[in-house]
Amino acid sequence: MLRLPSFKYLQPRTLKEAVAMKADAGPEGMYVAGGTDLYPNMKRRHQEPRTVISLMGLKELRKLDGWTVGTCLTLSELSDVPTFRQSHRAVAHAAELVSTPLLRNMGTLGGNLCLDTRCNYYDQTYEWRKAIDFCMKKDGHICWVAPSSPRCWAVSSSDVAPVAVAIGAEFRLVGPQGERVVPAGRFYHNDGINYLTKQPDEILVEVRLPAPDGWDAVYHKLRRRGSFDFPVLGVAAWVKWEPGNGNRETGRVAEARIVLGGVASWPQEIPEAAAALRGCELGDDAIARAAAAAYRPAKPLDNTDFDLSWRKQMTRVHVTRALEELRGRR
């Protein structure tokens, strides 16, 4: 049986207490929410914290208040919020596409947003990694995906993150220095190791979703199986319709954002694709231009399921389908 290394487990009741515990534990302390990402990693010896601080007992993180969502809501809870199924369908949908129903009963919104980047040279046991002399993300010096590269190319594999970036969610963080709010788009780095702008001692407390206000978003996920699998491509597409007279919209796109998951170390925004849509109706031509624009910068590498060239080809197909769905929903 694969087992956890030994560690001290703490269960704070307040944010303040949690932050203090982390300060006491120092760099060998880590926060945990649902545990579905951290514990497998610990069993494979990716992370070996001496102190693990659970956030699940913090009431503040379990709150749902309008469009403000506590990050310790489980993915099951998030996808079941009735108002979200109406107004923030893309968020609920992305949440319910994560892994399996069992894992979603444990995994949290915050956990998915902070999901460790993935790579099939990295997501292996200690013994396996020893056979390739490890990699730079843990215990080694080289990135096996791109051996001449100075950086790690592990892949952002969150389903909710691309949606959060696309719809312009904001994240509230609390740390020893106080609190700050960052746009989702500035929460990530395109680096497989240093993939979050969040400091290790900061806690992602809540996600502020934009109010439903003339925008719409969809999320499409590509993976081998309908369950279990991480995305090898995620497409989050957001459009804000141009206001027209009264309740009517013109049918033209005022603003758009296309964000891809599974193709880089961060949720990758494709401004060229958005630009192709701005001011247009979502006609076939505009969609084709956006899909072509999204295809070019998508750079999947050989470190997930499927052949990388096929994954790149699929960008075009799935961006097209996502935009067609948005068009169909008007």
Binding site: N120, I132, R224, R225, G226, S227, D229
Partner: peptide, 29 residues
């Protein structure tokens, strides 16, 4: 979908020795 995949150029390690990456059909397939 099922295959034993190896990395011939990387010490012939098994590419995916796990229940996540060795693809066994779920109820949905």
């Amino acid at each position: 979908m099922e295959e034993m995949a190896y990395r011939g150029n990387r010490n012939v390690v098994h590419k995916i020795p796990s229940l996540l990456e060795y693809k066994s059909p779920t109820t949905l397939e």
